[in-house]
Structure formats: C-alpha cells, structure tokens
C-alpha cells in the first residue's frame, strides 16, 4: 500500500522535473513574492524602529518561511480531480485496484515532494540575499516538521472537497481561488495573525489554517513553546478527522450522481 503510494508520488515528481527549468522558475516566483514583503517591513522598521512583537530579523525570517512553505500549503492536486471528472477519467480511476482517495493521495505526495524541492531551493536562495534566522533549537525544528506533516492530510482532504464540487459545476478553478484566498487570510500568510483584530484572531484560532503558516513559523522562531505545541497537534488531529469525514461523505454522495459528458 505504502509502496504504491510512494510510486505514484515519485511519478508525479518526475513529471515535473522533465523540464528542469520549472524548478528554477518556481523558485524565482517565490523570491519575487517575498521581495515586496521584506522591503515594506524594512521601510516600516527604519521609520518607526519597531514592529509589534517582532525584531526585524524575525519578521524577515517570518516572510521568507511563508514563501518557503507556500508550495507545501497551497499547492497540490488542485484542479486534477475536477479535470478527471470533466474529462471522464474518473470512470477508469474508480475501477483502479486502489481506492480513488488513496490514488490521489499518492499524487498529492508527488506534488508535496516537488513542493519540498522548491521550498528548499527558495530557502537556500533567500539565505544569499538576507540573513535568515535558524530554528531556536532542534526540538523546535522537530515540532515545526511535525506540524507541517500533519498539514498534508488536512490540505489534501480540503482539496478533495473542493475538487468534488466538479460534479456540480465546471467553474472549479474559481473555487480553487476561493480556497487559496481563505487560507491566505486566516493562516498568517499575509501578516502574523497577532497584527489582525482580536475578533478575527478568534475565528483563526478555531480554523485549521493557522497551522499552515503562523503556528509552525512561530515554533521555529521560539515564540510558541512547551505544552502549547501538544495542544496544537491535538487540534490538528481533530481537524484531520473532521476533514476526512467531510470529504468522504461529500464524495460518496456526489459520485452517485455521476454523469459525464460523452465519457
């Protein structure tokens, strides 16, 4: 089972690396994205001498980690499911000896593998241009990785839910943008969540998206420590379960309606 998953994942990475330039360009994209953030915050820091709760090095590291983590938190199989529904490949994929969910999870792992490659390249290149802080200690780094690993199923099931909408509408790409925007707003991607209004933070605390950026980066910087991390992992496990049930129920309901244009 695991072997099959990894094989599917490997295939996905290979597909990407067919064009070596892709990795270079995706990394370039990440760097271009971080430039504005960093220069804006440096300008604010030079003017006011402080940013609430963050040293200038910390805020630069925060945003570099944000763009580094984007490939793993926002990318994924995305349109693949909607595409498989629209083109009718789904009829074949449902007959696969492994379940549809498992098959696409393998594909998701491939995407994550390529995302990880891009992330590592981005992180290294950013180190050339700016001073990036290292994790405060080895335990913080291990916790950082654990949180990121638990994000994979949450992000995957969420994409499954959005992809399943493909049974009802052809305009799923809009749903994808909706998904990305909501994650961007509630995850701390735009700015550390402590800078948002309190009411907003309360909503963000309940949703699972905070763990995509804000929480792991703060653990990395040593601002979240100890027992709190265990609570966060508990919260993530609950969300994995919720997302799994939602995705399964929705998919099983939708798949009964299957009618494919000329499939």
């Amino acid at each position: 089972m695991l072997g099959t998953l990894l094989k599917i994942g490997k295939m996905g990475i290979k597909e990407y690396l067919q064009y070596k330039s892709v990795l270079f360009l995706f990394t370039l994209n990440r760097i271009i994205e971080v430039v504005v953030y960093i220069f804006v915050w440096y300008a604010i820091y030079n003017q006011t001498g402080q940013i609430e709760g963050f040293a200038i090095n910390e805020i630069a590291t925060y945003y570099i980690l944000v763009v580094t983590l984007v490939p793993m938190s926002l990318w994924g199989i995305n349109e693949d499911i909607a595409y498989s529904i629209r083109k009718g490949y789904i009829t074949r994929e449902l007959l696969n000896p492994i379940s549809y969910f498992t098959y696409y999870f393998g594909k998701e792992l491939g995407e994550m593998g390529f995302g990880l490659l891009t992330a590592i390249c981005t992180f290294i290149v950013c180190n050339i241009f700016w001073t990036v802080l290292m994790p405060v200690n080895i335990w913080a780094f291990i916790a950082f990785i654990c949180i990121l690993l638990l994000n994979i199923p949450i992000s995957y099931f969420l994409q499954m839910i959005v992809g399943t909408c493909g049974f009802y509408t052809n305009a799923t790409w809009g749903m994808q943008i909706l998904r990305k925007s909501i994650i961007s707003i509630f995850s701390g991607l735009i700015a550390p969540l402590t800078m948002f209004p309190v009411a907003f933070q309360k909503v963000a605390n309940i949703l699972p998206f905070k763990e995509f950026f804000y929480t792991p980066i703060n653990i990395y910087l040593g601002k979240i420590q100890g027992v709190e991390i265990l609570f966060i992992i508990g919260k993530q496990l609950i969300w994995v379960l919720i997302m799994y049930v939602l995705a399964k129920v929705f998919f099983n309901k939708a798949v009964k309606k299957i009618t494919i244009n000329g499939g």
Partner: peptide
C-alpha cells in the same frame, strides 16, 4: 465565479 474570485484575491 471569475469576478468573485478576483475580488477575493
């Protein structure tokens, strides 16, 4: 859908 998603971005 296109316009709504644009507004969100």
């Amino acid at each position: 859908v296109g316009i709504i998603s644009q507004l969100l971005t």
